[in-house]
Amino acid sequence: MSIEALVDLTGPGRYLDWRFIQISGANFAVIVLMLVVFVLALFLPFPGGRGAGKR
């Protein structure tokens, strides 16, 4: 049984450079995604959040 990746990430890495900052595209994507998810978690309404809280 052979399980091939659908997206090949083994090629030469892509890197972003600003002044002394170097970051791989993949790590940058992970960090941006964490921030996006954090912001979404703060802003998206939670189901049952409104109107709940009756004793």
């Binding site: 954090f38 978690a41 703060l42 939670f46 959040g49 409104r50 709940a52």
Partner: peptide, 11 residues
Amino acid sequence: PAYVASWIYVF
């Protein structure tokens, strides 16, 4: 408690 109503709680 009624205030536990945000997606931030699921992480």
